[in-house]
Write a protein that binds this DNA or RNA. Sequence first.
DNA 1: CTGAAAGCGCTTACAG
DNA 2: CTGAAAGCGCTTACAG
Lengths: 335, 335
Amino acid sequence: MKSKITLKELAKLLNVSVSTVSKALNDSPEISPKTAERVKELAKLHNYKPNPVAVNLKKSKTGTVGVVIPNISNSFFARVLSGIEAEAQKYDLQVITYISNESYGREKQICDLLTAGFVDGVLIAVSEETQRKRDYDHLFNLVEYDIPVVMYDRINVSIPADKVGVDDEKSFFEATGYFKSKGLKKIGIASAIHHLGVGKSRIQGYESALSKTEKPFIAASSRPNVLKEKIQDLLIQDGVEALLCTDFESSLMAARIAYENDLKIPNDLKLMGYISKEVAEFLTPSLSYIEQHPRDLGSTALQLLQNRLDGRSTPGKFEEVIIETTIVHLESSEI
Amino acid sequence: MKSKITLKELAKLLNVSVSTVSKALNDSPEISPKTAERVKELAKLHNYKPNPVAVNLKKSKTGTVGVVIPNISNSFFARVLSGIEAEAQKYDLQVITYISNESYGREKQICDLLTAGFVDGVLIAVSEETQRKRDYDHLFNLVEYDIPVVMYDRINVSIPADKVGVDDEKSFFEATGYFKSKGLKKIGIASAIHHLGVGKSRIQGYESALSKTEKPFIAASSRPNVLKEKIQDLLIQDGVEALLCTDFESSLMAARIAYENDLKIPNDLKLMGYISKEVAEFLTPSLSYIEQHPRDLGSTALQLLQNRLDGRSTPGKFEEVIIETTIVHLESSEI
DNA sequence: CTGAAAGCGCTTACAG
DNA sequence: CTGAAAGCGCTTACAG
């Protein structure tokens, strides 16, 4: 059990002052090469590493960023976190993770905690409940405390913060256009998240790709039973030929309904899902999906925060970055 | 932008010393009730919160724990993290997340970083590569630096650390026994992770449930193409009636092979997967699975660490906790 | 080039 | 009951 050596102890061993040791290790030009070498050698020998807590106190920062995640079981957010972590590494920032579980109360609690100064900045995707309540005071509060905030994914909010989102509207506009270009007439959409901002945008994109004369086929409900019936109606009664899904739940529900009603995918029905690569590729048939590049979303979010922290951003002016989605065609959309 | 108020500033406003303010806020019995009240009132008014970095420096701790995760896209680990975070909250510990991406090099780098004193303790599931190399020096190093380590999930290692694992062997022993009790004769197992400790244990559990006269049917390979052929042989040539899968990949691959060969699940083939609840329930047919209770795993891991940190554990004596699994029967194992 | 001093924001043993 | 002092482990302006 080698307990950590401190600057003071190194100084004593070397018979120099603490200041000299500190400067030598920080490559200060004030120190003679000879001393610098002596110091560094002993430091290396003892495997000296400055105590981060002390350094941070001195520098009036924490060296950490807080990430608020609505639901970590959602592989989209898990992958965002992975992008954040990878990028944070480049700037020697530690990533503290908080999970709101889509709860407004917990999210508020987290933000209140963060005003105490646990982190230098916050990356947040607001919870579903927060979006419904439209109560963002806890975020404004962070900003008031001079803690920079970056919103990711769920960014449809007026807050003085940088934002990174996914081009939800365009992705569905294009996916719809794709099926139209292949001559399909009846194209529908299913959504379990039509009440969320991202859900609305996706449906919006779908609708705007339809011409005035084309009838929209929309099945939307946050209640599974209701959604199931609505999708069933679309597929059986309306005879929809291609179905876009805005989320994991509706994607897999559509696949099941097709199966139960003996509709073959992709022969009888083309399906475009909104699920993660990990699952999409392994399904039978594999499910075409809209790739949102969550890792890029994460790394961009951290990048925006880092720009704030090192003062490279203009105070009071905020950026909004949109990550382009990609349509990945697997078996379920073969034509 | 209200910048944070400090003890010193509060003291000046109140015309008392910094020590008095500090003691008052920490409910020291040394302080008169009258003063205490005055102090607390002003503190509340200014929304004073002690600077955590300063408090931690003073107390020679960090107030954080580090969690090393091999692969966050794996929803098992995501849910472990969620359990850790929820438990950490109870003890006012912040959770710093590090992702090793199943890489030995990155894992070592993370552990080296952590010896600098970023965290009070470490929770780790070692990477696949680390397990293959069997090189755990970086973990011993943490222990040497007096940073308590708790291993979770992948715990088949001799290290002076507390451990929490899943009862992999027993779960497969029982799942195999279940099918036997239903009169099935040909029971097989598929694995893409037979080279990992957890994979070995699961296969072991399966084998030990078979009697001497029963022939084991094992399809194992980490190469998808090879695994696919092996499973195919099991299902088609050997006519296996029930298949257990040790991991996500083999679970979904088996479902696909059954589909491609027109084997109906569960009529022609019973399937037992090892995947997360989130995915299992939504598949068609829904996939019976072995629930590992990852959130419990996470909260137990943090609990063990907390016991070390507050000195409730016996130094030099380490605990090993095994979380019991549960077999969840959905459509794919209906008999 | 080196070191003493001040200070980051706290806590706590000690003196009065 | 209150406050001055020391100290957690650093960094850095300043003096010499």
